[in-house]
Amino acid sequence: MYRFLLTRQWVILTLVALVLIPTMIKLGIWQMHRYDERTARNQLVTDALGAKPVPVEELASPGHTVTSSERYRTVTAQGRFDTDDEVVVRRRTNSDDAVGYHVLTPFVLKDGKVLLVNRGWIPADGPSQTAFPKIPAPPRGEITVSGRLMPDETTAASGIKNLKGLPDRQIMLIDSEQQARRLDAQVLGGYIAQTAPDSKNDTPELIGRPGKEDAALNFAYAYQWWLFAAAVPVGWVVLLRRELRDRRRKDETGAVDEVPAAVG
């Protein structure tokens, strides 16, 4: 009765089912790993944003690489802005997806070291992209700034190519080592996205708080793959029973046809 399972059609169908089941289980496991990773990153962001502000020197130093647990930590620094060596970071968008620049201003600390401060976003409304844009001036003199500590930007992490031959005082990526060579100074690793002071008076648009990744989708996708994996053998059994039913019906019809008609 089950000899049809050895036909080419059923052999292929069974092999496909046997391949799909472990594949879908692995895809579900992969989605759960993604869920765990995103949940962990979200927790790091929550912990960093909720941590007590500390002086930047406690977390950063020249040549230091900002770690994932240090990222988004609120830090403070005392010193003065050096607008003579200010640069702009090209092709950056604001909360409305308008294209413009980020303003990167060296902040000279009391011991002479330099902290790179991303003061925020300005529109690219100049006569051309080669001309240095007009930038609102920061507060003068000795002040205290605070911001979220950020790691150096890389092409691998951001997808932004570090183009060469750019107009003077324009860059593509914020790289503390590159800026240390340009400024010929000791520059703290990473930079800060400024959060204060913000006078609200013709200043760059401050960069908003970081958003969190949607981990719930990965959780849902994992169970979706596992449901698919469970549905494969169920579907195989349904097809098998249908095939048996059709074959029995065909056999019964054939048997009826072979019975001779009664002679009256």
Score class of each variant (00 low, 15 high):
152 D>R: 05
130 T>I: 01
136 P>I: 04
126 G>F: 08
141 G>Y: 04
133 P>R: 09
187 V>E: 08
116 L>Q: 04
146 S>Y: 00
140 R>P: 04
181 R>T: 12
127 P>Y: 01
113 K>D: 15
113 K>P: 00
114 V>H: 02
126 G>K: 09
173 L>W: 07
103 V>A: 13
155 T>M: 11
147 G>A: 08
171 I>Y: 13
108 V>D: 05
117 V>L: 07
153 E>I: 00
165 G>T: 04
150 M>C: 04
164 K>T: 14
171 I>H: 07
178 Q>V: 01
167 P>C: 03
180 A>I: 01
185 A>H: 07
176 S>I: 02
111 D>L: 04
151 P>S: 08
138 P>T: 04
136 P>G: 07
114 V>A: 07
106 P>W: 03
165 G>D: 14
167 P>R: 03
123 P>G: 10
142 E>N: 12
147 G>P: 01
128 S>W: 05
182 R>H: 11
163 L>E: 14
168 D>K: 13
178 Q>W: 05
113 K>H: 12
124 A>Q: 14
142 E>H: 01
151 P>I: 10
164 K>C: 02
184 D>V: 00
129 Q>D: 14
117 V>H: 10
129 Q>W: 09
103 V>L: 10
147 G>T: 03
122 I>C: 06
112 G>S: 10
140 R>E: 15
157 A>P: 00
159 G>L: 08
121 W>Q: 12
116 L>S: 06
141 G>A: 06
184 D>M: 05
171 I>C: 07
127 P>M: 04
128 S>L: 09
165 G>V: 05
115 L>H: 06
157 A>R: 13
151 P>V: 02
